[in-house]
Simulated assay, not measured.
Amino acid sequence: MRVSIFITCLADQLYPEVGESVARLLHRYGCEVDFPEMQTCCGQPAFNSGYQDETREVARVMIRAFENSDYVVSPSGSCTGMMHHYYPMLFADEPEWKLKAEQLVEKTYEFSQFLVNVLGVTDLGAKYDIKATYHPSCHATRLLGVKEEPGKLLSNVKGLELIDLPKKEDCCGFGGTFAVKMADMSEAMVCEKAGHVCSTGAEVLLGTDMGCLMNIGGRLNKDNKPIRVMHLAQLLEEGVKNDESGR
């Protein structure tokens, strides 16, 4: 199958290694992976700020970019959720574009969702001797319903000690433009989240969305807490390498 990676702004600009991990893992399971260079932002920052006309133009670009893809896979529940829930609505008065938006939605998946529900993969043969905790992002769980998939993948990583994160369902305070518009509230939320992460004694914080991980990781770094933040795809890819090398 031909799978196109939707990299997202954060991964493209700040965490390209996450996209590389996604590409390598998809290739490992027989996917023909490509990267449409026409792709851009999903439009969520503009949409959340009330600029629907501008968001609509961005959405048109994204629809064209992935028009010929069999599947679209993204390392972000937030950006994938934007497409799923708001693209068809944006074109409610344009039947042709609404249909195209719905077709994009039907073939677009968050990374763990695609591995488990489309490829049927739950055990990658990964090995990682480390103590970790997992933060479930709001948009992935609440907009996309991605709840069990990351856990299924992590439960099969040999050597991984996964510690439950206290009040894991609470938002980290990022929320894209929310962190800018409501900075004081956002800071209070991420401080609380970072405290819960530290209370687990974990060496690594895992997640499926780099927006959340960037926010929490920034707080941990500011507090001089030596806890590494990793996208799920990174841990799985490194874990596969560890198993293959016998580490």
Rank of each mutant, 00 (worst) to 15 (best):
L104W: 02
E192T: 13
T108W: 02
M82W: 05
G145Y: 08
G120T: 11
R142P: 01
D184L: 13
F91P: 03
S76K: 00
C171K: 13
F91I: 01
V116K: 06
E102D: 10
L160D: 09
E106S: 14
A183Y: 08
S112Q: 05
V146P: 08
D184Q: 13
M82Q: 14
G77N: 05
F111D: 10
Y134W: 12
L160C: 12
D164A: 15
A183Q: 12
S155L: 04
H84D: 02
Y86I: 00
Q113M: 06
G151F: 14
M182G: 03
H135Y: 14
Y71S: 09
G77Y: 02
F174S: 13
K168C: 00
L119S: 02
Y86T: 09
G125C: 10
E96T: 10
K98C: 10
K168E: 12
E161L: 05
D129A: 12
A132I: 02
A132R: 04
V72M: 06
K147I: 14
P88M: 04
I163G: 09
G77P: 08
C79T: 06
T108E: 02
V118S: 09
E110F: 00
D93C: 04
T177Q: 07
S137P: 10
E148L: 09
A183W: 04
I130G: 01
V61R: 02
S74M: 08
M185P: 00
V73Q: 03
T177A: 09
G125D: 07
V116D: 03
P88S: 10
G77R: 02
A179W: 03
S155Y: 07
K131Y: 06
L124I: 09
V61P: 00
